[in-house]
Amino acid sequence: MTFKLIINGKTLKGETTTEAVDAATAEKVLKQYANDNGIDGEWTYDDATKTFTVTE
């Protein structure tokens, strides 16, 4: 399955996707991606669209 991350950061905005077997696995990968890029904020997840959003 494809999961999307929408980034609403102070210095970085955009989106990325990852392939994962489930939402929990995708969340780990996407949170690591955000952490690697210095993004720390509030996370939400929409199961209907398989989209995570992080807002700083």
Rank of each mutant, 00 (worst) to 15 (best):
M1K: 12
M1D: 11
M1N: 12
M1V: 14
T2C: 11
T2G: 05
T2E: 11
F3Y: 14
F3L: 01
K4S: 06
L5E: 02
L5D: 01
L5F: 04
L5C: 05
I6F: 06
I6C: 06
I6V: 13
I6S: 04
I6D: 03
I6T: 05
I6K: 07
I7K: 02
I7T: 04
I7R: 02
I7Y: 12
I7F: 13
N8Q: 10
G9L: 15
G9Q: 06
G9T: 15
G9A: 09
G9C: 11
G9D: 04
G9S: 11
K10G: 08
K10H: 12
K10I: 15
T11L: 10
T11H: 14
T11A: 09
T11E: 09
L12P: 05
L12G: 10
L12R: 10
K13N: 09
K13C: 12
K13D: 06
K13R: 12
G14V: 15
G14R: 12
E15K: 06
E15N: 08
E15M: 13
E15T: 13
T18Q: 04
T18N: 02
E19H: 13
E19M: 14
A20I: 03
A20G: 04
A20K: 03
A20V: 04
A20C: 08
V21E: 11
V21S: 12
V21Y: 12
V21R: 11
D22P: 01
A23S: 10
A23M: 13
A24Q: 12
T25P: 01
T25V: 09
A26G: 03
A26H: 00
E27Y: 15
E27S: 07
K28P: 04
K28H: 09
V29D: 06
L30K: 00
L30R: 00
K31P: 00
K31Y: 06
Q32F: 05
Q32I: 08
Q32V: 07
Q32K: 13
Q32D: 09
Y33F: 11
Y33Q: 03
A34I: 05
A34T: 06
A34K: 01
D36K: 09
D36Q: 11
D36I: 09
G38K: 07
G38Q: 07
I39D: 01
D40T: 14
D40W: 14
G41L: 02
G41T: 01
E42Y: 12
E42D: 11
W43V: 02
W43S: 00
W43L: 03
T44S: 12
T44R: 08
T44C: 08
T44F: 10
Y45A: 01
D46L: 04
D47E: 14
D47I: 09
A48R: 10
A48N: 12
A48K: 11
T49F: 05
T49A: 08
K50L: 12
T51Q: 05
F52C: 01
T53D: 02
T53S: 06
T53V: 08
V54M: 05
V54C: 06
T55R: 06
E56G: 05
E56D: 09
